[in-house]
Structure formats: C-alpha cells, structure tokens
C-alpha cells in the first residue's frame, strides 16, 4: 500500500520563552496526514493545538516561540530546511491555514475580493483581472454572491467572514489544510453549513486536513482519524471508530464523560477534576497523572510509552504495561 502523505510531523518540540520562563507548548509530537483524509486534533485549551498548526507552516511567532527540534514535511518538502522565499511558495499553495477567529483574521482595510486576489496572485502567474475573476469564483464556491467582493470585512457577518477566510485558504488549491477551530466563533446553524462546505471542498480538492476543535460532535462528523492532545503531547491516536468506540487513554475517557449525553439526560456530567499542569513546569512523568483516577506511582516516575492496539491505534499510558488493564468506558463496551 502506497500512502501519499501531505503532512508529516516528526518529533516536533516547540517552546515559548517569555521573560526567561520556558513554556513547553509541544513535545515530541508525531502526526501524519494522508491526502483526502481528515485528522481531528482535540484537547483542552492550552494543549498546544494551535502551536502545532503554526509550526506546520513555520509560522510560530519568533520571538517568543522556537521550534526546538523536529522534522516537518509538507508534500515531501522539509520546510525546516527551506529558504524564506521557498517558504513563501509553500504557504498558501501547498499548505493553508484557517484561523480560530474570523472576526479578526481578515484585514479590515482591504476589500474581501482583494484579499482573495492577493492570495491567487502570490502563487499563480495571473494578471490582476484574471486573478480577480478567479477570486469571484472562489467567493461563489463558498456561497457568497460575487457582487459582494467590493465590500470590506466589517460589512460581513461572522459566518460570511469565515467563508471568506476559507476562500482565501483554498484559493490556490492547497494539498493540505489546517482548520483551527473554524466554527467555534459561529452559531450552531452556521457551524453546520460551514462544516458541510469544508467537507465538500475537501473531497472536491482531495485535500488532507487537520481539524482542530473542542467539539467531539464535529470530530465524529467529518474526521477519519483522531489525535487527542494533552499538555503538548498526543496521548491517544487512532481511527475515528477506535478512539470513539474503543477508547484507551484515561484522558480521552474523561473527555467523553464530560460531554452532555444526549441519549441519556439523566446521566451526570463528569468533568475531569483539576486543571492541566502549568506548561512552564511539566512533571517528569505523565502530565495527566495528577488528574487520573488510574494513576499509580509508576506513572509519575517516567514518561509513558506508546502502546499500540492496532496499526493505527495507540495510547501513551503506563497502565497498559499490565496487559489486562481496561478503563471503565471500554469495559462497558467490550
């Protein structure tokens, strides 16, 4: 089987240094995305999701951020080795990103048409009128009438702005798209529309996609694979079915238990107790151990190794040293 990976991240470590204090935002992260598939990246706030995404475009703000180590391949090119100029060609053309907040991610003093046109002109050898025409087509593709191209972002609603952001990101048919909580700032009905559209465009362009979200419902809807991040590391990864129905990591279990259960409204919400550890002062052992009800002394002593349950499914949890170990959730199901 010959898989075509559009994004490969190997052993990525990213730090932020603010006033001498080092925030370990991402540690030894490995992630691969195949063309045409979507990986959901989930985790609490501060887990390092956005930082991972920025690193994939080499856009981590420096200072204060630095990519300490790691290899990042975008469509086979090691972007850590590219010159600035080559990097400009990769961004927007091979890999694109949609940012968290549509209200602030568009330039307020340029028309939306111009902002899409700019993206096209940066990568395609088109004259302005042709690029403008293509920008209008992109606008229509995301469901905005072409007559509104001359308007400014402040004349658009949040949902429409996010569509414009998507149009900018997709203007040059990138092979890889990272969507950082593309719908969090939108209301529920608009969310569904935008997600639907992204799904359609992903299939149309055969893009690889990372979808960053807090919302496991969204993950269930469009992702093929799921990576669960905690304190800068991926603690569990597998196909949608594996992670959702054969959950292995206690943190993932905690995430599911903290969801409201629609089928059984009587069931109590069980939020994960405690807070994520301070990223400037991560423990030697498993970062989740202080909040984990299965934790033992062994967990605090060293970083957990990854335990593979199938070719695609692993969890980084020391408890699986004991082959008979099962978390509550899987016990119910298996």
């Amino acid at each position: 089987m010959n898989k075509e990976y559009v994004l490969e991240i190997e052993d990525l470590t990213v730090e932020y240094v603010v006033e001498g204090e080092v925030t370990q935002a991402v540690t030894d992260l490995n992630l691969k995305v195949e063309a045409g598939t979507t990986v959901g990246l989930v985790g609490e706030t501060g887990a390092g999701k956005t930082t991972t995404a920025l690193a994939a475009l080499r856009l981590v703000p420096d200072p204060p951020g630095t990519i300490r180590s790691g290899r990042i391949l975008v469509c086979g090119q090691d972007i850590m080795k590219l010159s600035q100029k080559q990097l400009y060609n990769v961004r927007g053309q091979d890999i694109s990103m949609i940012f968290q907040d549509p209200m602030t991610s568009l330039n307020p003093v340029e028309t939306v048409g111009d902002q899409i046109t700019e993206s096209i002109m940066l990568h395609e050898k088109l004259k302005r009128p042709q690029a403008w025409e293509k920008a209008l087509e992109m606008l229509e593709l995301v469901g905005i009438p072409r007559t509104r191209a001359m308007e400014y972002p402040h004349q658009f609603s949040g949902g429409m702005r996010q569509r414009v952001v998507i149009a900018i990101a997709l203007a040059c048919n990138p092979k890889m798209l990272i969507a950082d909580e593309p719908t969090t700032a939108l209301d529920v009905t608009i969310q569904a529309q935008v997600l639907d559209m992204m799904k359609k465009l992903r299939d149309q362009f055969n893009m690889g996609m990372i979808l960053i979200t807090h919302d496991l419902g969204i993950v269930a809807e469009i992702c093929d694979e799921v990576a669960v991040m905690y304190a800068g590391r991926i603690v569990e990864m597998g196909t949608l079915d594996e992670v959702f129905n054969h959950t292995r990591h206690p943190y993932t279990e905690g995430l599911f238990n903290s969801l409201p259960n629609i089928k059984n409204r009587e069931a109590k919400l069980q939020p994960i107790p405690g807070l994520m550890p301070d990223p400037t002062d991560l423990p030697v052992g498993c970062a989740f151990a202080p909040r984990c009800r299965y934790a033992t002394e062994a967990c605090k002593a060293a970083q957990p190794a990854a335990h593979h349950f199938s070719d695609t499914h692993f969890a980084a949890c020391t408890a699986y040293e004991d082959p008979s170990f099962r978390i509550e959730r899987s016990k119910d199901r298996e």
Partner: peptide, 25 residues
C-alpha cells in the same frame, strides 16, 4: 494582529506583510 498571520499564511513575503497589510492599518 491575526490578519497579518492570515497574510503570512497566504505566502505573502514579509515585506508585503509589513508595508502593505500592517502599515495600511
């Protein structure tokens, strides 16, 4: 600001990001 990040993510060269997007704002 976020829109400069958007401009960078498009592949705009740093000069263009600063002199076009930032300066105009």
């Amino acid at each position: 600001s976020d829109y400069l990040r958007t401009a960078r993510a498009k592949g705009a060269p740093e000069r263009q990001v600063i002199y076009k997007h930032a300066l105009k704002n």
